[in-house]
Simulated assay, not measured.
Amino acid sequence: MKSLAEQMSIYQRYHRNPKNKATHFVGVPAIVLAVMLALSWVPIGHSGITLADVLVVPLLVYYFRLDGPLALASTIVLGALLALAHGLDANLSQTGAWIAFGVLFVGGWIVQLVGHAFEGRKPALADNLFQVFIAPIFLVAEVFFACGYKPGLREAVEAGHPRHA
């Protein structure tokens, strides 16, 4: 398994332009919310648990294997998006939920593609679909870096090295 620093080094090569990074703080959560909303329509038995609930668990387990503090922060972010998805599902009509999904999903991708126009480079997932799973933790790490946390990881990501302090 590649380290977080190695995966983020790959991802950040596609996200150097500040305008592109900014668009990702809108686009990635919108897309994640849209996917969670759609997956919340799939119940798992009669437990009240949905496919959205089930699928977020392995992603967070993976994040915890990569980095505990970033995974904790990602848990809060993904938990909030999951709660919002369930809230939308519970409070919107079926038509309203489909419209919300469409606006979030298509709108999120439009924002992403606009960002990559600033970058002048295709999205990372065009070369490696797995990068779609790195995007959320990458954004959390960017917030940590902006606040002065995880300087060893930031240096390793910038240097392209697979290890970090």
Rank of each mutant, 00 (worst) to 15 (best):
Lys2Thr: 13
Ala5Met: 04
Glu6His: 14
Gln7Ile: 07
Gln7Arg: 14
Met8Ala: 10
Ser9Leu: 01
Ser9Tyr: 02
Ile10Lys: 14
Ile10Arg: 15
Gln12Phe: 14
Arg13Asn: 09
Arg13Ser: 09
Tyr14Ser: 08
Tyr14Phe: 15
Asn17Val: 02
Pro18Cys: 05
Pro18Ile: 01
Lys19Ala: 15
Asn20Leu: 04
Lys21Cys: 06
Lys21Asn: 13
Thr23Tyr: 00
Val26Asn: 05
Val28Trp: 00
Pro29Phe: 01
Pro29Gln: 04
Ile31Gln: 08
Val32His: 09
Val32Asn: 10
Leu33Cys: 05
Leu33Glu: 05
Leu33Tyr: 02
Ala34Met: 10
Val35Thr: 04
Met36Arg: 05
Ala38Gly: 06
Leu39Cys: 04
Trp41His: 14
Trp41Ser: 15
Val42Gly: 00
Pro43Gln: 04
Ile44Gly: 02
Gly45Thr: 03
His46Ser: 11
Ser47Arg: 06
Ser47Asn: 05
Gly48Thr: 03
Gly48Pro: 02
Ile49His: 10
Ile49Tyr: 11
Ile49Arg: 12
Ala52Gln: 11
Ala52Pro: 08
Ala52Arg: 14
Val54Cys: 06
Leu55His: 08
Val56Pro: 04
Val56Phe: 06
Val57Asp: 06
Leu60Val: 09
Leu60Arg: 05
Val61Glu: 03
Val61Ala: 13
Arg65Trp: 09
Arg65Ile: 09
Gly68Trp: 15
Pro69Ser: 05
Pro69Thr: 04
Pro69Gln: 06
Pro69Met: 07
Leu70Tyr: 02
Leu70Gly: 01
Ala73Asn: 08
Leu78Tyr: 08
Ala80Ile: 09
Ala80Asp: 07
Leu82Ile: 10
Ala83Ser: 14
His86Trp: 07
Leu88Lys: 08
Ala90Phe: 06
Asn91Met: 15
Asn91Ile: 15
Leu92Pro: 03
Ser93Gly: 14
Gln94Lys: 15
Gln94Pro: 13
Gln94Asp: 15
Ala97Ser: 11
Trp98Lys: 07
Trp98Val: 07
Ala100Met: 04
Phe101Leu: 07
Phe101Pro: 07
Phe101Ser: 10
Phe101Tyr: 08
Val103Leu: 15
Leu104Pro: 00
Gly107Asp: 00
Gly107Ser: 02
Gly108Phe: 00
Gly108Asn: 04
Gly108Cys: 03
Trp109Leu: 10
Ile110Arg: 03
His116Leu: 00
His116Ala: 01
Phe118Arg: 06
Phe118Met: 07
Glu119Leu: 01
Glu119Tyr: 01
Glu119Met: 02
Gly120Leu: 12
Ala126Ser: 14
Asp127Met: 05
Asp127Trp: 09
Asn128Tyr: 05
Asn128Gln: 09
Leu129Pro: 10
Gln131Met: 07
Gln131Lys: 04
Val132Phe: 01
Ile134Ser: 06
Ile134Leu: 07
Ala135Ile: 00
Ile137Trp: 02
Ile137Leu: 08
Ile137Gly: 04
Val140Lys: 01
Val140Tyr: 02
Val143Tyr: 01
Phe144Ala: 13
Phe145Val: 07
Ala146Lys: 11
Cys147Asn: 12
Cys147Thr: 14
Tyr149Ser: 11
Glu155Thr: 13
Ala156Gly: 14
Ala156Met: 11
Ala156Cys: 15
Val157Phe: 00
Glu158Ser: 13
Glu158Thr: 13
Ala159Thr: 05
Pro162Met: 12
Arg163Leu: 09
His164Pro: 11
Ala165Val: 10
Ala165Leu: 12
Ala165Tyr: 11
Ala165Thr: 12
